[in-house]
Nucleic acid binder design. Structure first.
Lengths: 228, 228
DNA sequence: CGGAATCCTCTTCGATACTG
DNA sequence: CAGTATCGAAGAGGATTCCG
């Protein structure tokens, strides 16, 4: 029962008492892109085991990080959703993403990959100069996954599910998407090869590949906290 | 043996593969205030156990987060020191601190407390308006601990050990220090009560209590990442 | 004495099977 | 579909011992 704590009167240790256990922060990552059902979470956290997920969700609900709610009709399914306190964790996750991209390298064989993860990493590493003046929504269909990204003046907000009125809709498969975001493949080439289909403003395609083309626009860009 | 990984091609998951195990980020926290010996780390991480600390240090050295070096004479002792890649983790720790202060509350009985932790939390929660125009160094002697804080135009940098040319030297005990930073006690009252001794510019004392007085100047201040 | 390997007990994790 | 129950395997915590 008794949650294990560090027993330190320290802000970071207290945060880690809540968030430091295995899988916990990845659950938050999943919920950053919108509410999810138990099943969806299992999908996004391969290897977690149902008992552990259930336990973590219960803990996190107790800590006020997420809430168990029922989606409005017609869906009506039970979902887990971040509270405001949970969404406050976004900067932490983005910081981890910024640190993690540098040692991402090539995908290992057998490694799981979900397209949204890439978009979340983009968001983290995007400098304020990228996508400036742009205010558009892109909808992605990557294999079975459907998600969209709202870009608004230098900030991108990835979210699960279809968009309301997307300016551009892109359809591709997981491998092609990975090649695109890692810069190994150009969008125009992918279209010619029949690996990518696009609907919407053709000029928007230029912008979207500009924003999401190279995986990291500017490595070691400002941390914003003046690390020595 | 085999380090446990999430097996996900995701920047955050990769970061957590390296940092997500118990104690790891707290080791980084300790090293953010300067190089430390094995013994010093044990002191700052009550409950860790020598075997685990040794294992973590080896892992982190392998990951390029820290380096085992020998201090220049006359010290000549072996110390652990963050690499640049390790110092890049500061924003992550600061983010955790900002999130953690909100649920810090009153110190639990039996909970460990090291004065530097408080100063690190201050740094994390300090808004850019605080300590603007200030460029001073304060040296703290709290019980056995000696550390200093360099304040430079809105940014504070806590570090272990004495300062080179401190503008102010403060001497007190752990409990009094905790009362001071939590705002339960005013510096002037502490001096009158003989609990705090100060050497240096008297005007600097006003500034230092202004900067480090209330534990959190402005809660929920900007996260700098535009969390929804 | 600082630094680290060894042993042992206990908790947590991971996978599967099972139930409302 | 959403979770609980179970059990072997891995990891953590604490003390002790070893190396320099």
């Amino acid at each position: 029962m008794s949650r294990r704590t560090y027993g330190q009167y320290c802000a970071m240790a207290r945060a880690l008492d809540v968030l430091g256990e295995r899988w916990t922060l990845l659950i938050v990552r999943e919920l950053l892109t919108g509410p999810k059902r138990f099943k969806d979470l299992l999908e996004g956290l391969p290897g977690i085991g149902t008992n552990l997920l259930a336990a973590r969700l219960k803990d996190l609900e107790g800590e006020g990080v997420l809430r168990r709610t029922t989606l409005p009709p017609p869906a009506g399914s039970a979902v887990y959703q971040l509270t405001e306190r949970g969404r406050d964790l976004e900067p932490v996750l983005m910081g981890l993403a910024r640190w993690g991209v540098d040692q991402l390298g090539e995908p290992h064989t057998g490694e799981a990959f979900r397209p949204v993860w890439a978009v979340q990493a983009m968001k983290a590493t995007m400098g304020p100069e990228a996508a400036r003046w742009v205010r558009e929504t892109y909808e992605f269909h990557v294999g079975e996954d459907v998600f969209h990204v709202r870009v608004d003046d230098g900030v991108s907000e990835p979210e699960y599910g279809p968009a309301f009125e997307p300016d551009l809709v892109l359809r591709t498969d997981g491998d092609t998407f990975l090649s695109l975001v890692s810069g190994r493949l150009e969008a125009t080439d992918a279209i010619e090869a029949g690996k990518l289909r696009v609907e919407g403003d053709p000029e928007a395609l230029a912008r979207v590949s500009d924003i999401f083309g190279p995986p990291v626009g500017a490595r070691r860009s400002g941390t914003g906290l003046g690390a020595s």
